[in-house]
Amino acid sequence: MSSSRSEGIDMVKQERARRTRERVLDAAAEEFAVQGYSKATLNAVAERTGMTKGALYGHFASKETLAGALLTRSQEVWEEMLLARDVPGTAARTALESLVLDLAHRLREDVRLRAALRLATDCPNLMHTMPDVFHRIRHNLVDLIGRAQQEGDMPPHPPELVARLLLVAMHGALHVSFGPAGCADRSAWEAVWRLLLDALSGGHSGNSQAGESEQSVARQ
């Protein structure tokens, strides 16, 4: 067998293994998001993927390594979100609003991030050896809130309390829907979050589009 053919076969195998690993992470995220860490099992994850438990062990040796992989990936996602919005020259209040809106939407759409936050809040003992995504998000929110206060765009409420309120609201929002038949559209959620952020800032955004969205939500 030629070296080029061998390399090609190896690349195909690596790509297949990568896709399988991603499928397992998605299945594990679904399981952790619904059951939490203590009730989730590798058997249930294997059933979601259609794999045997032995095949699953070939990619992840334990439930803990699965959780660790999800937490690591989710922290990377959060860091990318933060870097994209908290850029030099951007007001802290603007960066905070953009980040909160994006995080709220992602928590509804990204089961891996949702699972990671549940793991971080349900199992603090895991965080001794794994990335603490929840702590990182809270720390960054506190920093942005404090900077927004220094810039005069938010009243001097304790930043830690404001950050906790935002995170509690996000967690609760995962279990609430707006609109007909329980369907939440993006504009409705943006109106709700802008209203909360405006209330926390002690003022109004002056954004007519946000005001129209709030009126639309109120009519639903």
Rank of each mutant, 00 (worst) to 15 (best):
residue 1 M to T: 11
residue 157 H to W: 06
residue 158 P to C: 12
residue 109 E to M: 06
residue 146 G to L: 02
residue 92 A to V: 10
residue 161 L to R: 00
residue 7 E to Y: 00
residue 132 D to T: 06
residue 98 S to E: 09
residue 134 F to P: 01
residue 146 G to K: 05
residue 111 V to L: 15
residue 207 N to D: 15
residue 75 Q to W: 01
residue 175 H to I: 03
residue 147 R to N: 14
residue 181 A to D: 13
residue 74 S to I: 11
residue 180 P to C: 02
residue 121 T to H: 08
residue 106 R to Y: 00
residue 24 V to F: 09
residue 183 C to Q: 15
residue 46 A to F: 09
residue 185 D to S: 14
residue 118 R to F: 02
residue 204 H to C: 11
residue 58 G to Q: 11
residue 124 P to W: 15
residue 57 Y to F: 02
residue 102 D to R: 03
residue 90 T to P: 05
residue 208 S to W: 10
residue 143 D to T: 14
residue 152 G to Y: 04
residue 58 G to T: 07
residue 165 L to D: 06
residue 44 A to L: 13
residue 135 H to Y: 09
residue 161 L to A: 05
residue 77 V to C: 10
residue 93 R to Y: 14
residue 183 C to A: 15
residue 195 L to V: 08
residue 78 W to F: 08
residue 129 T to W: 14
residue 189 W to D: 03
residue 143 D to V: 13
residue 129 T to I: 07
residue 67 A to G: 03
residue 136 R to L: 09
residue 152 G to I: 08
residue 180 P to H: 03
residue 67 A to E: 00
residue 71 L to I: 07
residue 159 P to A: 14
residue 11 M to F: 10
residue 9 I to H: 12
residue 30 E to H: 11
residue 124 P to A: 15
residue 178 F to V: 12
residue 181 A to P: 02
residue 197 L to R: 04
residue 107 L to S: 09
residue 122 D to K: 06
residue 124 P to V: 15
residue 176 V to R: 12
residue 80 E to N: 13
residue 136 R to P: 01
residue 64 E to Q: 14
residue 94 T to F: 15
residue 188 A to H: 05
residue 56 L to H: 07
residue 32 F to C: 02
residue 104 A to G: 13
residue 145 I to L: 05
residue 217 V to A: 10
residue 80 E to S: 15
residue 131 P to S: 08
residue 60 F to D: 00
